[in-house]
Every structure is written in C-alpha cells, then in structure tokens.
Design a protein around this nucleic acid. Structure first.
Lengths: 167, 167
DNA sequence: GTGATATACTAAATGTTGTTGATTATCTAG
DNA sequence: CTAGATAATCAACAACATTTAGTATATCAC
C-alpha cells in the first residue's frame, strides 16, 4: 500500500530526479516515524530533537557550549534550552558553567547518556539491518558513498537557508 | 545477515554499517529540518504530517477513506482527524461522505491542494538540486535504485512494528 | 568604572501532535 | 427489529517544540 502513487497520472513524465525526490520524501517520513516509535520506547522516552542533541554530544571528549550546540544541531538557542532542560532532568547530560567565561554554559553527556545512546544505536541498528537485509554487500558500500555525498550537499543547502534565522 | 565483515574491524573503528547508519540518521535530521523550514514558508504554512498526508492524496484519482489514509500515512485515526481538519480549513482537501456507506468519510485533494503540492515539490526540487548538484548522472541513477530498495525495507519494518498499535 | 556586547535563561503564548475513552451515525447479521 | 460491529469524530488532556521579547550575568573595550 505504500506504492499506491506509482499507478497513474501521466501529465508530465516522471524523471529519475522525480523518483529520487519521492523516495527521499518517503524515506524521510518513514524514517522519522519509525525512529519516533523507537525513541518513544519505555527504555528511552526521548523525542527526536532530544536524541539528535544527545547524539551530537556523545562523541565529544569535552563539554560543548550551548551556542555551539545550537548551531550544530540547527536549533535556536531558546529552543535548545528547553531540549537540554529535558535531557538534564533525565540526567543524560550535565551543565557546567565555564570557569573562564562564566556566561557560558558547557554541556557534556553523562556516562548514563552515553550508555543510552549506545542502546538506542543498537536498537536502531537492528531495525536498520532488517531494512537493509535484502541489499547485497556491494550495494551497501555504494549506498554508503552516495549517501555521504548527498549528506554533504544537504548540509550545505541547510546552512545557506538558515542565514541568520537562528542567530 | 551481513555481520560477516563486522568482526574484522577493531573496537572503536567505524564499520561501513555504522557509517550508513550515521549518514541515514543525519540525513533524516537535516532533511526534516530543511523541509520544515520550507513548509513553514508563508506560501505554504504546513506541518510535516500535514504535507505527507496531502502528498499521499495528491496522485490519487479518487477520494480516499479516512481509515485507509490513516494506515497509509501511519497515523492514528484520531490524530488524522486533526490533521485533516487543518488541511480542510486551508481548503487543500475536501471531505465527502460516501454514498454507499454513510459512515465513511472520503477525502480528496482539491485543485488548490494539488497546486500547492506542486509548488512545494518545485521548491523542494530546487533545494534538492543544490544538494545533488555535485553527483554524476550515473551516481544519481544508482542512488535512485538503492533508495528504492532501502525504502521498501523500511516500510516493511515499520509496518511490522506497528502491529495493532494504530488499529 | 561605564557602556556596549555576548551568553544563556525565562516567561508567556501558540500550535501541533498524540493518547484515551466516550459518542454519534451507520451498517449488517440474525 | 434488534444487537453488535464499524467509521469517524469529539472531548479532555499531556507533552513538546517553537517564537518573541525581556532579563540577569558576565565580559570587554575604552
């Protein structure tokens, strides 16, 4: 039933570009839904923005300024405060005032936060394996390369579109 | 399945699978943000669920039952009612009671709704072209095929995960 | 020190999605 | 005709993200 659209409508031919566009749109939607379901699991109880904020902190060895975090995760500072509040309540991150510049608040993931991210990634991995189970190994590798290139392009357009909006 | 090559990677090292996973996560996040920005434009003023609901109706030649629409867009019936309400207010869709079974409400996109979807797609296309501008034609084609396969896998896992939850 | 700027937070308001459980209208089986 | 199922909605509520504008604190240039 996900292919319903394929059927008809020949007012203007479908180009490969249209197909990619549609695929990306549907992937975006399905991925989001699927991931929301996962994050909503009783083990995690996270929202999507909360997770991606946490995900950005997770690999860092040092704490991260709020403003940098906002920029990196493409959220406004005011919005981020709320998100970080909720992560803080759950003890997934820690807020520390910077000693040098006491205006700044440095955010760092806690051990528990790291563990949770690992758990989520593992759960996600299992979902993903099911989704990619029917791809050959060479296809996986090709996909990896292509996605990387798409990603870099998307990041660029996003940054361009933001011009000052979140500043 | 494809765990084979995982073993030969040292701990802490990124496997191709990890890379795809990370790319998909980031694409999902960036795509969502980017798209939200676009839909929030004064021309459209739509939310993501509203758009995907509309997108599902757009290619259909006939009206669609609420319950079918809910299933197809992976939303609960009660939730969908609200979404459709807002699409209705904006005159992007029309609700008609089915003549045969008067319990059913059939939803169909309006001409204006189709126009708006076309506009959004066009705007999206421009964003997308910027993002894909650096890919070769053969890469685009390869990407198209792969995305299609990923998509079908994702749809399957999503449906499996939903088992009864939205019924 | 003073004034301007930077940083993060707060408050208040808005809108959306989502859930649960009840409700209305309709259909169908017997 | 009645009992029960079905389709969609409604009501009431919770949670979140988001925006705007304002505030407290700290820094820096002078």
């Amino acid at each position: 039933m996900t292919q319903v659209h394929r059927e008809q409508h020949a007012e203007g031919e479908r180009t490969p570009f249209d197909e990619i566009e549609r695929s990306l749109m549907q992937i975006s939607w399905l991925a989001q839904r699927q991931f929301m379901q996962l994050l909503d699991d009783e083990r995690f109880r996270l929202t999507v923005p909360q997770f991606y904020t946490l995900l950005h902190l997770e690999p860092l060895t040092e704490a991260c300024k709020m403003s940098d975090l906002a920029e990196a995760t493409h959220q406004s500072a005011a919005s981020l405060t709320g998100v970080v509040d909720r992560l803080d309540e759950k003890q997934l991150i820690e807020r520390v005032r910077d000693a040098k510049d006491r205006r700044q608040v440095m955010v760092a993931v806690t051990t528990y936060g790291r563990e949770l991210v690992a758990e989520i990634k593992q759960a996600r991995r299992e979902q993903m394996q099911m989704a990619l189970a029917h791809l050959a190994e060479t296809e996986i590798e090709a996909l990896m390369v292509l996605l990387d290139r798409v990603l870099s392009g998307m990041a660029r357009t996003l940054e361009r579109a933001e011009g000052g909006r979140l500043a």
